[in-house]
Amino acid sequence: MAITINGSDVEAPGDARVSLLDLVRDRLNLPGTKKGCNQGACGACTVLVDGERVLSCMTLAVQCEGRSVTTIEGLAAGGALHSLQQAFIDHDGFQCGYCTPGQICSAVGMIAEIERGVPSVITADLGGEGLSLSREEIQERMSGNLCRCGAHNGIIDAISEILVREAAE
């Protein structure tokens, strides 16, 4: 069974120790996914596996056989930008740019979770239908992605803009 990465099939590494993160960065020359701690503690390595946001540093590549992985390089087709990528630029949702691919992949996964109705720990009424899209809700749901440059406001602004736009559509 192959691992599908950004639409292409890749053979799983022979060494089971290889993380999904090191597979894409070191072996497939897809360095857009970043290594910030390799401890499951910063979120810089966030990718989408079967559409769900996960940490590629804590995922063994062999665990992804038969699954579909999307990295930052696979988010938008061709040279175009995903709407979130453009929103990050517009709102200056980054400085050094190192945590940025992880933030963006995480936001893509988060938006899907919100659409599915997944609550967060600060959701007041767990039993209720529908979620409010308050700023705090987005902050809580994005808290697994650290940013040391302090672009937090711009990141949340960018995601909010996309959420509001999607809600309007």
């Binding site: 960065r25 360095p31 970043k34 390089e73 938008a76 990528q85 740019g97 940025t100 691919p101 963006i104």
Partner: peptide, 21 residues
């Protein structure tokens, strides 16, 4: 003015030290 290297960074295409093959 938005960052001139913004597009590189949001695409993960800005090369960092460990990313030179």
């Amino acid at each position: 003015t938005s960052r001139v290297d913004g597009s590189l960074k949001v695409r993960g295409a800005a090369p960092f030290a460990a990313e030179f093959p």
